[in-house]
Design a protein around this nucleic acid. Structure first.
Lengths: 336, 336
DNA sequence: TTGTAGGCGTTATCAG
DNA sequence: CTGATAACGCCTACAA
């Protein structure tokens, strides 16, 4: 016999239940939030009353005395970047399963804008996941001092992070290109604020040295298709036979621009990227890329956050997430 | 001289400010929430104190007496569907500008799962945007009775909705295909619970009749690339020369499967879709599609919600969002 | 213009 | 095991 709760009618409270069940409100609170601390009989009666009234806890009221909001924030730079698909999905699922709500915020512009967004959200969440942050290390450290924070694809001293296994992926890619006969490579870097872009380049450098390959870097680019297109001219000028884009978006932009210039990929130029986003497989030729476990990253970030909230030691960065080279058709033998 | 707020130190309250400024807490509340109701002098003093303590309102505490949570929910069936991108972006931006926080929830499975998700979120939000809902009309009506709700791409009596201009887009598409000489079409429908899929088919039917074209429908499909692939066999069996996918994802799946069968698009089969998502332009050949204004839809949905919250009449569905036919290379002359 | 007092829904601390 | 009662941080009549 559940009533039809109209929008105007206020939601039932534990007082309503208490009255209906003939007990004290505090007993209702106990019965409903910490089962077992109340006699089975009364608990049953209270639950029945709660059902009948279609009762839900008021999260706001609940948060007041406890300080727990049961809400987590996920901050991303650009929602339209397909990389965050998986991250969002993994994070949302894990949060929901733990009874937490996930707030997603986009920080678009500068690190200034991002800082503001976070500032705005902070009072209503218990912790924050930073997925593609443009924040400085200082700001991140400051943030982590206020609320539990976990980083994805970024390492900052003293702050928990979830990282991909950069080295193995990069190595596999280099081995692949080496095998195809490429001796000169270019890396099209991401934003200067991207920690992971720098790390990828570092490892590329090491690997290229070991293999005796030439490697140059094409300075900071917006991590979008546009960014990739804009970089083509500099890529061509480098005379490399294979380009490695900071991410798939850049790689795709590169391929589009190359096609427009009459360049045939991979005959004239081999192109590869990172992440394996939606779309990488769609483009012609399909993109060779280093796949990251995005969903797992999102899930793990939230797990870490929940652990910290549960009182775990703060900083910890567990084993990096495995990475796989996905060979498709955008890479081929070096032109002779 | 801002202190370094440590995670353990509790956030400052209006009491702290009151003490520091030598006034009553209620005066602080007034000064900070409704400027002008306090003498300029005291207000200045209070603001200074607030700054000094780096004060933020506690949204939870604020929500208690007022009942306003300043939070909106956006519920989507599948976060990895690129259609959602634009919607999320538009919604998030509009919400943030109005000082609202956006919670995004994914409801994956059945309408049962979606109902549960909403149920869980409801107490912590002021209103809900349903973007790709699988809920029944009854459930939607029930939901709207509890909290303000706005639908995207779905019309339900008595509930506000944001709709695309289906007719003009469909008509443009039909005219395009007619001009290319196609006389037999197939529509690859979306899920049976998709209101907009049915509407698209209806209009296709009308238009096909008017133009004397043949049209068949290939029953309900999952709105993903997989769903499109699975439908190809039935599409071929229909003997149509042009397929219209419920959305771009289905169209892309169709194209992939067709290519694997050795069919050349558009020589052997013309393919088109709806939405113009990320990826439609990337695939080869680039997809002809009816573009929807996704970002605008998300923004407008939140605007409507805010209007309702501000006391506007409840139901209203304003002029549909314009739709544009984007002709690319997946459609061509009908085979003779 | 500013202070006082009561309340919002829940939890926590004490008694009983 | 259960009932009072005081927080939690803010808002809002009402009074001064």
């Amino acid at each position: 016999m559940s009533e039809t709760p109209s929008r105007s009618a206020k939601a039932p409270t534990i007082y309503d239940i208490a009255e209906l069940a003939g007990v004290n409100p505090s007993t209702v609170s106990r019965a409903l939030s910490k089962p077992g601390r109340v006699s089975a009989k009364t608990e049953a009666r209270i639950r029945a009353a709660a059902d009948q009234l279609d009762f839900r806890f008021n999260p706001m009221a609940r948060a007041l005395p406890t300080g727990r909001r049961h809400t987590l924030a996920l901050v991303v730079a650009d929602i339209t970047n397909p990389v965050i698909f998986g991250i969002v999905r993994g994070a949302e699922k894990t949060a929901a399963e733990a009874g937490y709500t996930l707030v997603i915020a986009e920080s678009q512009e500068s690190d200034e804008a991002e800082a503001e967004t976070i500032e705005r959200l902070l009072p209503s969440v218990d912790g924050v996941v930073l997925a593609t942050t443009r924040l400085s290390n200082e700001r991140i450290t400051a943030l982590a001092a206020k609320k539990p924070a976990v980083l994805i694809n970024r390492a900052v001293d003293g702050v928990s992070g979830v990282l991909p296994d950069i080295d193995s992926g990069v190595d596999a890619l280099l081995t692949h290109l080496d095998g195809l006969g490429h001796r000169a490579l270019v890396y099209v870097a991401g934003p200067s604020t991207s920690w992971i872009s720098a790390r990828r380049f570092e490892r590329l450098l090491e690997g290229a040295e070991q293999r005796g390959m030439a490697l140059t870097e094409v300075g900071h680019n917006v991590p979008t298709i546009e960014g990739g297109r804009d970089a083509l001219r500099r890529v061509i000028a480098s005379r490399a036979t294979a380009v490695i884009g900071f991410n798939d978006l850049i790689a795709i932009g590169l391929m589009q621009a190359a096609a427009e210039q009459g360049l045939v990929v991979p005959r004239d130029l081999s192109v590869s990227g990172f992440d394996d986003i939606f779309g990488s497989e769609l483009i012609t030729p399909p993109l060779t890329t280093v796949r990251a476990q995005l969903t797992a990253a999102g899930a793990r970030a939230v797990e870490r956050l929940l652990e910290i909230l549960a009182g775990a030691e703060d900083e910890r960065t567990d084993a990096p997430l495995e990475t796989t080279l996905v060979i498709r058709e955008s890479t081929g033998a070096a032109p002779s």
